[in-house]
């Protein structure tokens, strides 16, 4: 045989070379595009084929949250500060962006859980699961953005030049969420508690993130919100969409700069952890 065969060696304590691992991970990620697309297509078409309301399920939570707050605000039960745009637009943008963020944070654990059966039977590039999750988030986001466009037209809000940055900041939002979720995945696969804690924590964190109201001028809430890394991620996106003043740009840059290396590292850890997880789940 003149052709050199690809050789795989499995032994304990494989030498961990970070650069090599990142390289292998990126190659697998690149090569798993078709698989990722196919998995996303499979999940999307199967979930909508067995549903009447279909894509509407993607917005039901953000819209109901928004409606509750519109009601609270208009009834005067809570007095909120002026947001600079009509409150319904403000709150819809907030809840829709928040829903994309929470979807991104939850995605790695959910996607890996759903593929548990596959993972213990077939050897395929695991990165495909994450990539397919990102595809699904992007698919759902398209409809959420279309909904926003509809609100813009209804409330006659003119887009500004800043909107051109939106694809970039929106991708950063997704990448940040996926990164956070990926760090929690190895532990979350072993213990169910992790996914539950994330779900509960996010419900509280929403109130220290300016989703349905702006950052107050002073007080403990202001300090908490300004420390919360989700604040700049969400705020920059919303203010770009609504053409409002951009604040917390430095914090946003810092977060963007650390998201990329942390995401790569999380993907490598994910890759290394899967065999240990599969062993514990199927043993």
């Amino acid at each position: 045989m003149s052709v050199e065969l690809e050789t795989k060696i499995y032994q304990r304590g494989n030498k961990l070379n970070l650069i090599l691992l990142v390289k292998e991970m990126l190659i697998d990620l690149y090569q798993s595009r078709f698989l990722a697309k196919q998995l996303a297509k499979r999940d999307i078409s199967s979930s909508y084929r067995q549903s009447f309301l279909g894509i509407i399920w993607a917005f039901i939570t953000p819209i109901t949250t928004a409606l509750v707050w519109i009601f609270i605000n208009s009834s005067g039960a809570v007095s909120l500060e002026d947001t600079g745009v009509p409150y319904p637009v403000f709150v819809f943008t907030g809840t829709l962006l928040w829903s994309v963020l929470t979807e991104s944070i939850n995605m790695p654990i959910t996607a890996t859980r759903e593929a548990k059966g596959l993972l213990s039977k077939i050897n395929f590039p695991k990165e495909a699961l994450i990539l397919s999750g990102v595809y699904k988030i992007l698919f759902n986001s398209t409809f959420k953005i279309l909904l926003l466009v509809f609100f813009f037209i209804y409330f006659q809000i003119l887009p500004t030049v800043a909107l051109l940055w939106m694809p970039l900041t929106f991708l950063i939002l997704i990448a940040f969420g996926v990164m956070v979720g990926l760090w929690l995945t190895p532990l979350g696969m072993l213990y169910n508690d992790v996914a539950k804690v994330i779900g509960m924590a996010l419900r509280f964190i929403m109130y220290i993130t300016p989703v349905v109201y702006t950052i107050p001028k002073d007080g403990l809430m202001k300090t908490l919100m300004e420390l919360n890394p989700l604040t700049p991620i969400l705020l920059i996106n919303r203010n770009i969409i609504l053409g409002l003043d951009i604040n917390y740009l430095n914090y946003f840059f810092v977060l963007t700069a650390i998201t990329v290396p942390l995401l790569l590292l999380a993907l490598v850890i994910y890759r290394v952890s899967i065999p240990v997880i599969v062993e514990r789940l199927s043993a």
């Binding site: 499995y10 304990r12 039977k121 240990v276 599969v278 062993e279």
Partner: peptide, 21 residues
């Protein structure tokens, strides 16, 4: 390659196809 060995070494050459499921 689904799980790692605790001891010893496995060398697989070429494309591996698995009809496990």
């Amino acid at each position: 390659g689904l799980i790692n060995p605790d001891h010893g070494k496995v060398t697989m050459r070429g494309r591996v196809g698995a009809l496990i499921e």
